[in-house]
């Protein structure tokens, strides 16, 4: 029930951000070349920038509510185990990506490969976290 309330909080924050962006986009289209045309664009950038921290605040509030931020709870143990596992995954993946870059280097941009590697590692962390948590606490 509490995880669904957290998901609802995330969705609410994202929905509010999207609604604000839509309103600001409409405002931006309406003013076009007027003297105030930079204002909606600047506000849109602000909304995008502040959505991340707002999601983090929602996450922190939820952690405090369910006491998952306790130093003695299982959450720290799960995070530690997931980080440790992903470190070894990173060693293997970096080697694999390095080798594939040597082979397909002409077709893939290094920045693109780096982003793919980082996204893969982040996804693997969350997968490992979910698996370890399920194994320990369910």
């Amino acid at each position: 029930m509490k995880s669904s309330s957290l998901a609802l909080k995330y969705l609410a924050v994202i929905a509010v951000a999207l609604a604000l962006i839509a309103v600001l986009a409409a405002w931006s289209a309406a003013v076009q070349d007027g003297p105030w045309n930079a204002v909606p664009r600047v506000l849109m950038v602000c909304v995008v920038i502040f959505t991340g921290p707002a999601v983090m605040v929602a996450k922190k509030q939820n952690a405090m509510m369910v006491r998952s931020d306790s130093a003695e709870g299982i959450e720290r143990e799960v995070a530690l185990r997931a980080s440790s596992a992903v470190f070894y995954d990173a060693l293997v993946l970096i080697t694999a990506f390095g080798a594939s870059f040597l082979i397909f280097g002409d077709y893939a941009h290094p920045a693109f490969m780096t982003i793919v590697l980082l996204v893969t590692l982040i996804v693997m962390y969350f997968i490992r976290h979910a698996i370890i948590l399920k194994k320990l606490a369910q």
Binding site: V66, R67, S68, S70, E72, G73, I74, E75, L133, L136, A137, Q138
Partner: peptide, 13 residues
């Protein structure tokens, strides 16, 4: 969990 300051998942584990 509330009494000892941890999450319910910690109590389950």
């Amino acid at each position: 969990a509330q009494a000892v300051g941890i999450s319910r998942q910690s109590v389950i584990a």
